[in-house]
Design a protein around this nucleic acid. Structure first.
Lengths: 342, 342
DNA sequence: CTGAAAGCGCTTACAG
DNA sequence: CTGAAAGCGCTTACAG
């Protein structure tokens, strides 16, 4: 069962291919009678334009690509869902690629997408990424690009972000408001903007509330894993006996820390309070439930696609391209890993 | 910066487009000298074949589509990861679409993919899907199709599955082996094969061990949510005072049930033992940790792509197409929501 | 060893 | 209102 082509319809009706094509696309210069005839025949033969030919002619594939560090991840899969939902509304399909937090892979994935001639790229950067040459190449090829969540501040393109610094400030302030005096921070790797910003928000909250910043209370996570939460919690307990609160870069790590505190029978939140970041589903079902910052993944995905779509249209119509940055609100979700505000 | 084309290289070197094309593809009938010249020029100009043109000529897009019920889902995102990893090895890109467990949407997504002329489709069926017309259409169009996890037994194509019945049998038997006498089951919706099979495995384990099957101990879940776990646990406690074990179709639901048992201070596993299914990450971090069946999502994805790739090749080479069914092993992960075997 | 030609299936500017 | 023609960028069977 080979798909129907324009020329088959043309032959059947004894008219030219051009007329068939124009009739189907409702060109004004085709007679009503012909249009009707063509459309009926097309419907009976279940005609569908050959996507390959259309792509080649229009130089559009109605397909976009998304590159994220990791698919198996509550936040990123929510983003994907938002992107797919919004893309579908506009008739776009979505190709997904993973960077595994590797700069080299990220670069390769960009090449793959450019070679495929996708209509646009959505990206959340790998932790390793410090050089942005590959992103500039995307822009040099005039392929629309939108960054979300893990962005490069210096690259000039549309972005969808949250205010990591303010959110981290709020998280840390919550610890202070609930009586914590000595607050540690499990931070992310050195490079990504969001781990820098969360660290800065933490630091600012301390100084704003006259709590001295102590660099020995900063613990690094390299791959943001459960296991690192366990290990850092262990170290923290070994190093410091007086810490009564900890703000952790990501829920998964926080859940690891909580499991270690539980194992050592450290009472949460009485002896130590914990605040995470991202509001992974599991945070609402562990014991104690985790106070965290809600990060709107689904909305982020939707908005990222919207910005990309706008840029695709602007380029097509040869309009000036105006980059836009959308900042989505976050909110503190108070649960039982922190005390009540007095 | 417009991409380089064959004709540009041809013009530059004063040779024909055909020769350039053949040189780049190492046709034996092109002189070494010409090949070298062409390849060097291509490299300098950063020539990449235009994917749209190649697609149109070769009638291949080197892109496959995958349709799953839900992206934000630990098991399915693992499968996606496996598919993407394997596809990348073979130079294929992956388009992801969601059915949201809806038959209508699933059908629409199939149409979208067929219209795009992807090279193959990987699908895990929606719960609602009882009619397979859309799948037959895929096959009628000679598009390779592989089903995984939630399959239609009656549709003749390659499949990657686990043995849900045996796995459920093992889960239930574990409850029996650890001393449970009256075992409930939270099952999935009526249609999908996996919820039928898991139910049958549960039932068989009971009868094999001389425990009478009691239909009042079966509770339905329609959307496999945390909330349904809570509600069913409530009902179970209201309806029956003597139940000492429950086998639950999916971890997420089991986690909901556990949270309700905890809330009502029912001791797990002393008063009631719980076994889940799928081994979601969170099952290892809740309290108590959940005994469950590990379902190899990543491997499933890898194997599904492998079968699809094989079929793509077979069709291309006009070989006979042999459908294959791969059954992946599962295993019981013993944790603290069940007692120890005496 | 090289190149002219046909063709994949469509779109669109142009002529009539 | 209709159609011939050019062209998107490639591949490949065929001629020389």
């Amino acid at each position: 069962m080979k798909p129907t082509t324009l020329s088959q319809i043309a032959e059947l009706l004894n008219i030219s291919i051009s007329t068939v094509s124009k009739a189907l696309k409702d060109y004004p210069d085709v007679s009503k009678r012909t249009k009707l005839l063509v459309k009926e025949t097309a419907a009976t033969l279940n005609y569908k334009p050959n996507a390959f030919a259309v792509n080649l002619r229009t130089k559009e594939s109605k397909t976009i690509g998304i590159i994220i560090p990791e698919v198996v991840h509550h936040f990123f899969s929510s983003v994907i869902k938002g992107i797919i939902a919004q893309a579908e509304k506009k008739g776009y399909l979505v190709i997904i690629l993973q960077s595994n937090e590797s700069y080299k892979l990220e670069k390769k994935q960009i090449e793959l997408l450019l070679d495929k001639h996708i209509d646009g790229i959505l990206i959340s950067l790998a932790n390793e990424t410090a050089d942005f040459q590959h992103l500039y190449e995307v822009m040099a090829r005039e392929t629309p690009l939108v960054m979300f969540d893990k962005i490069a501040k210096l690259v000039n393109c549309s972005k969808v972000i949250i205010n990591d610094r303010n959110a981290a400030y709020e998280a840390t302030k919550h610890l202070i408001d609930t009586g914590c005096k000595r607050i540690a921070h499990f931070r992310g790797p050195l490079l990504p903007q969001n781990s820098i910003d969360r660290f800065l928000g933490y630091k600012k909250a301390l100084t704003d509330h006259n709590i001295p910043y102590d660099s020995s209370l900063i613990y690094f996570c390299n791959n943001m894993s459960f296991e690192e939460g366990v290990q850092n919690a262990k170290k923290l307990l070994d190093d410091h006996t007086d810490v009564d609160g900890v703000f952790i870069n990501t829920d998964l790590v926080a859940v690891g820390a909580i499991s270690e505190f539980n194992r050592q029978n450290i009472k949460i939140p009485e002896e130590i309070s914990v605040v995470g970041f991202s509001n992974w589903f599991m945070s609402s079902v562990i014991s104690p439930t985790l106070t965290t910052i809600d990060q709107p993944g689904y909305l982020m995905g939707k908005n990222a696609f919207k910005l990309l779509y706008k840029e695709i249209r602007q380029r097509k119509e040869n309009n000036i391209i105006i980059f836009k940055q959308i900042e989505l609100p976050t909110k503190l979700i108070k649960r039982s890993s922190t005390r009540d505000i007095i």
